[in-house]
Nucleic acid binder design. Structure first.
Length: 490
RNA sequence: GCCUCCUUAGCUCAGUCGGUUAGAGCGACGGACUGUUAAUCCGCAGGUCCCAGGUUCAAGUCCUGGAGGGGGCGCCA
């Protein structure tokens, strides 16, 4: 650390700051400067200080008898302070080291009468309404450290495998990505929209000279790059203007979309399973303290629930179980047979009974397969072509496509992907069947005209992964500032 | 978009059949204590019962409408 400082050209006052994560494992006997926010001030003597570098607080011991009482009054929950002191072996239980304060400076006062966070448990619903402050809680600081670690691990996973990180466009001129309602992007004056002679909106006068939207998927662009670079992935924001009101949908979310030339559906499943297991293992290795806290939080929360609604496994057990077993792979057709013969189907417990092949699976069916029948992650493949996208490769017999959905307990679909249709004629026919305007997608079709190859890819919902790993249940709690219908606060 | 539940103190909630002065725990504040661990003990303050309208002698409670929030479903990642 001091080595780095030596090379700084500009003096930087924060440079003297020791992070709490570092000081907690430092050797006692040295002076340090720490800065952070007060969690509690006990007994007019013990400050629990947190700077977000880790879950744990640093205990600051104040010599209150020789300290200015008006200063002590300002050490309140939420106040930002700077402490110079000596790190010593703790004289109390509960921590190994503590800092004896030699100098206390209030950086930012915090009026406890109006500060919403109190040294007590708050509901997730309440914290959601004060999302600008919820980072200061144990739960949310843990979630966002885990979220960061997952994001980093994704780049590491792909980089270690020689993938190229592709920045697919966020503004798209294509309205045929086929993944749902889009947000329009325009600089036209909405109070005075220019019209053509026919009365249509005159998009030629818009910023890009055409109608544009926010992307719903980087897949099509990733395919273009994969057919030259072979192994690519995107990791960026994605926007869906669906009126979705659930605990697992957002209007703005982050998606990882690998796309690999020469891969078939089996390679695609292998990549998806390897990646998910790598990411879970990485978090187990690097976020132990946060995971243990989140696990304990879950236990406390589930104490409120009846026995039958509680998890069978603890959070960390669940993650390790996921690593220890191969994901169950089966076709849609096999899944339909299992569901058809399942007890809930026979007893009429499904809201949508399984009657015949071809029906789309409802989330109750997916849950049954994952949570009751197999009790582990499941990859469903080879769905009927009618219920999947135009770009998925037709199987022999032309009834099914080489699609795959990875289903996780509690989350449902965490990955959706497929081997892509690489045959020009077949792709063109499928686009016509599904009313995709081929003339607007010549650039996409060109890859099939010029040196086409089999290839495959998938989309991983980043927040759904964070949900699973943290054991949280509402996707709005694993993204800093969630966007959903009727809400774009902060 | 559909279904359902909720909205009472800063937070979490109780509030009986519609009945007269709306409660608790935690937090905050004041004091005591001073090696505490969301400290403890004593004390004190704190209310537009989400909003609007209606029924009634009387509404936190019943009815209608609206707003906000939770959960489920659909769309999907």
């Amino acid at each position: 650390m001091y080595f780095c400082l030596f090379f700084r050209k500009i003096p930087y006052f924060m440079s003297k700051r020791t992070r709490i994560k570092d000081i907690l494992s430092a050797t006692p006997g040295q002076d340090h400067t720490v800065m952070g926010w007060v969690r509690t001030f006990r007994n007019n003597q013990f400050i629990a200080l947190n700077d977000g570098s880790c879950l744990a607080n640093l205990q600051i011991v104040v010599d209150f008898e020789n300290e200015d009482p008006t200063l002590l009054k300002r050490i309140t929950t939420g106040a930002a302070i700077k402490i110079d002191g000596e790190l010593i072996a703790s004289q109390g239980k509960g921590q190994t080291v503590e800092l004896t304060a030699k100098n206390i400076e209030i950086l930012g006062d915090c009026d406890p009468e109006v500060y919403p966070l109190q040294p007590k448990r708050h509901s997730l619903e309440f914290l959601r309404e004060i999302a600008h402050l919820r980072f200061r809680t144990n739960t949310f600081s843990a979630i966002f450290r885990v979220r960061h670690t997952l994001a980093y691990a994704i780049h590491k996973f792909f980089n270690d495998r020689n993938f190229v990180y592709l920045h697919s466009p966020i503004i798209t001129g294509s309205d045929a990505e086929g993944a749902g309602e889009m947000f329009q992007v325009t600089t036209l004056d909405l109070n005075n929209i220019p019209r053509t002679d026919e009365g249509d909106i005159h998009f030629k006068k818009d910023f890009f000279g055409k109608a544009t939207n926010l992307t719903v998927s980087g897949q099509l662009e990733a395919e273009l790059a994969a057919l030259a670079l072979c192994d690519v992935y995107t990791f960026g924001p994605t926007f869906r203007a669906e009126n979705s009101n659930t605990t697992r949908h957002l209007a703005e979310f982050w998606m990882i979309e690998p796309e690999v030339a020469f891969n078939d559906l089996n390679d695609n499943m292998d990549l998806a399973e390897d990646m998910l297991k790598y990411l879970i293992q990485y978090v187990l290795d690097h976020c132990q303290e946060d995971l243990l806290f989140l696990e304990q939080r879950l236990v406390e929360e589930e104490k409120q629930k009846p026995q039958q609604d509680r998890s069978e496994m603890s959070l960390i057990e669940k993650l390790k179980f996921c690593l220890a077993h191969p994901f169950e792979r089966l076709t849609y057709t096999e899944a339909i047979e299992i569901l058809k013969n399942s007890t809930p189907n026979k007893k009429g417990k499904f809201q949508y009974p399984i009657e015949k092949w071809g029906a789309d699976l409802q989330s109750e069916h997916e849950r049954y397969l994952v949570e009751k029948h197999f009790k582990k992650p499941v990859i469903l493949t080879n769905y009927p072509k009618e219920i999947k996208a135009f770009y998925m490769r037709l199987d022999e017999g032309e009834k099914t496509v080489r699609a795959m959905d990875v289903l996780f307990p509690g989350i449902g679909e965490i990955i959706g992907g497929s081997q892509r249709e690489e045959r020009y004629d077949v792709l063109l026919r499928r686009m016509e069947e599904m009313h995709i305007p081929a003339e607007e997608m010549s650039w996409f079709l060109d890859t099939r005209r010029f040196g086409t190859v089999p290839h495959a890819g998938f989309g991983l919902g980043f927040e759904r992964l964070v949900l699973f790993v943290t054991g949280m249940t509402n996707i709005r709690d694993v993204i800093p500032f969630p966007r959903f219908p009727g809400n774009a606060e902060f």
